[in-house]
Design a protein around this nucleic acid. Structure first.
Length: 647
DNA sequence: TCTCACACCTTTGAAGTGG
DNA sequence: CCACTTCAAAGGTGTGAGA
């Protein structure tokens, strides 16, 4: 058994051979374990691996012997739990829960809009800089009792390098190779829908850096950074996953929300003075650079803050605490007024219609900000029109009025500047995941490379699990799921009772504290070992417009490619994404996701998981696997293509 | 184009104070 | 014991010089 293999793997070693189960025996735990690549060697795999090798070695799950013991023990526990469940089926509140319909509203959208208008520059430094404006979102439509995991990542928006010329940005060439991408799990994850909806999801702790050797992303510290290339364009993405355990992410459905106005170009120094002034005027940390006597480009922002603080006093519905949060909200409110003043964000008539029809019915949280019979509040309502409109974009009812806008992922739409509408893209995975694996665009195909799938009985892994490339998604009815990614074992035990074999706190904190990243596939990654976030990638490839329409819109976001080896390929233009934890728990947030095809044993998720299992019979699984195999066969040739044509 | 030191600012939490 | 205030350290900013 490979579990005992301690031999290190040298960079470039093809440690992961595609394993596609063909027979029922392939789905057993032993079969999966037998196909595991050597555990642990990935720690020392890359030139960067040495950074965390000593730490990783201390992790009990990184010891091959311990790992096997833990896995076996977890298997037994789950078996016992299964038997217990048969004798006394667990009571679940799921019957009272309703299907979720997550909607995500970008906070301070007007600030983002102004930011986008002025140049979309985001400063990155070697030590890391926070995003400005901060990425914050408000979620609604979640199942209050279900557990959700919220994530964020930043992906390249295109394949170009830019330069600032003649007061504007222009393409200056082909993009440099991307840095390893990281996906950030909100530290409050998993949390109930009620908890998420009660707060604003805030990723302001996320830092941007161009330091390749940066290791903050995986270290339990206040610093959580992602590596970007200067003078390249990026697009933050927000993911909502309905799952009660981080280790279930691979089997869960990602709903991805892309707010086009959050797109930015990473720079080491500001090129556009307007952006500089915008940030100085709005970022409290840059207050020292404000010149009150100077009527700067954005000085009216500052002036209006006072006005809006008065106008909106007491209207704050956000549960956030802390002055900074209030500050950002004030900024957002302030800019709402500005937008009204400048007419730039004046809602279109149909938007107003939607605002009246949908917003009044659904955006209670917003109403708390604007709810008033007071004429003063009427004015505020008009101010917030743009924000409400954006919020409604994810609302099913919005499609009635904005249907043409639901497919806003093509290149032209993205590049039309402020003239375009500002709606987020919502991608979700339909239950019929095979349809997306067979996506004609082909991008999903790459995700299947080296895919290892284990399905048994009624348990069916989702697209994510299927497509997690060199990761191993081993889900068995026996309950044991061993994740052998890069040779690192992780027990992803799924009991019928819904609790993981490894308590989340243990998984999350222990791993993070030891400088390990928890991948969406349940693997532990030492920095900077990065892996494909297949689930996230699929969010772009298996995307559907706002409301799960079966038609896939063109997307300009390249999927994450799966490395053809455990190491990062030299010519990998689209490195994989790893998931790691934001460790600061002071981040406010809320968002949630439905996981219609997730393999959820959690009682709160049994409904969706069980239904998914029913939807996909064993025969269907085999058929789908055959499809996967066919795809994989063609991937070798496909891999030579370095990128997917954009829209 | 990038890095670094710098001044200025906010944030945070510990320590002190008073009811 | 609790709430409030004070204070210092930590950390987030853009600037500007130099590489």
């Amino acid at each position: 058994m490979h579990l005992s293999n301690r031999d290190p793997v040298v960079p470039g070693d093809m440690a992961f051979q595609p394993f596609l189960p063909n027979t029922a025996s392939d789905f057993t735990l032993d079969a999966m374990l037998a196909r595991q690549p050597p555990f642990f060697p990935a720690i020392a795999l890359t030139s960067h691996g040495s950074l965390h090798l000593p730490v990783a070695q201390r992790h009990p799950m990184l010891d091959p012997v311990n790992a096997e013991t833990i896995i076996r023990k977890a298997s037994l526990e789950q078996h016992n739990a299964t038997q217990s469940a048969k004798l006394s089926p667990p009571k679940t509140l799921e019957t009272e829960a309703t299907e979720d319909d997550p909607k995500v509203h970008l906070e301070a959208r007007h600030l983002w809009t102004q930011f986008h208008k002025f140049g979309t520059e985001m400063v990155i430094t070697k030590s890391g800089r926070r995003m400005f404006p901060p990425f914050k979102a408000r979620c609604t439509g979640l199942n209050q009792r279900a557990k959700y995991i919220l994530l964020m990542d930043i992906v390249a928006a295109d394949d170009f390098r830019y330069k600032f010329h003649n007061s504007g940005w222009m393409v200056s060439g082909k993009a440099d190779p991307e840095m390893p991408k990281r996906m950030y799990i909100h530290p409050d994850s998993p949390a109930s829908g009620e908890q998420w909806m009660s707060k604003v999801v805030n990723f302001h702790k996320l830092k941007l850096t161009n330091n390749i050797s940066d290791k903050h992303g995986f270290v339990s510290s206040k610093n959580t950074s992602t590596i970007l290339n200067s003078m390249h364009k990026y697009q933050p993405r927000f993911h909502v996953v309905r799952a009660n355990d981080i280790l279930k992410l691979p089997y869960s459905t990602f709903r991805t929300y892309v707010f086009s106005e959050t797109e930015f170009i990473a720079v080491t120094a500001y090129q556009n003075d307007k952006i500089t002034q915008l940030k100085i005027d709005n970022n409290p940390f840059a207050k020292g650079f404000r010149d009150t006597g100077n009527a700067s480009t954005c000085s009216h922002f500052t002036n209006n803050i006072v006005f809006n603080q008065i106008m909106l006093e007491g209207c704050e519905s956000d549960n956030e605490s802390g002055q900074e949060s209030k500050h950002w909200n004030n900024i957002g409110q302030d800019l709402r007024k500005i937008s009204t003043t400048t007419e730039e964000l004046k809602p279109e008539p149909n938007v107003t219609t939607f605002h009246e029809k949908a917003d009044r019915a659904s955006t209670d949280s917003l109403r708390t900000e604007t709810d008033s019979e007071d004429p003063k509040q009427d004015h505020i309502n008009s101010i917030t029109g743009g924000m409400t409109r954006c919020f409604g974009a994810e609302d099913p009812r919005a499609t009635e009025h904005f249907q043409p806008l639901t497919v806003e992922t093509d290149q032209s739409a993205q590049l039309t500047g402020l003239g375009r509408t500002r709606f987020s893209h919502c991608y979700s995975y339909p239950p019929d995941w095979t349809r997306y694996i067979l996506n004609p665009l082909g991008v999903a195909h790459r995700l299947l490379y080296n895919a290892q799938v284990n399905m048994q009985g009624e348990t069916v892994s989702s697209v994510a699990a299927t497509a997690m490339g060199h990761m191993l998604a081993a889900v068995s009815s026996g309950g044991v799921c061993t994740m052998g990614t890069a040779g690192i074992p992780v027990s992803s035990v799924q009991r019928v009772s819904g609790t993981s074999g490894l308590p989340l706190n243990f998984q999350q904190h222990a791993m993070a504290s030891q400088g390990l990243a928890v991948s969406p596939f349940g693997a532990i990654f030492p920095y900077p070992y990065s892996y494909l976030a297949a689930t996230a990638a699929l969010s772009t490839t298996a995307s559907t417009p706002v409301h799960r329409r079966p038609v896939r819109p063109p997307t300009r976001f390249r999927p994450y490619s799966i490395p053809n080896s455990v190491g990062l390929p030299d010519n990998c233009s689209t490195p994989p994404t790893s998931i790691h934890l934001m460790t600061d728990r002071d981040v406010n947030c809320h968002t949630i996701a439905n996981s219609p095809i997730a393999v959820n044993s959690d009682s709160s998720l049994q409904g969706s998981g069980a239904s998914a299992a029913k939807r996909v019979s064993s025969k269907d699984c085999m058929d789908q696997l055959q499809c996967i195999q066919q795809l994989v066969r063609g991937i070798d040739s496909y891999q030579t293509e370095t990128h997917i044509p954009m829209s």
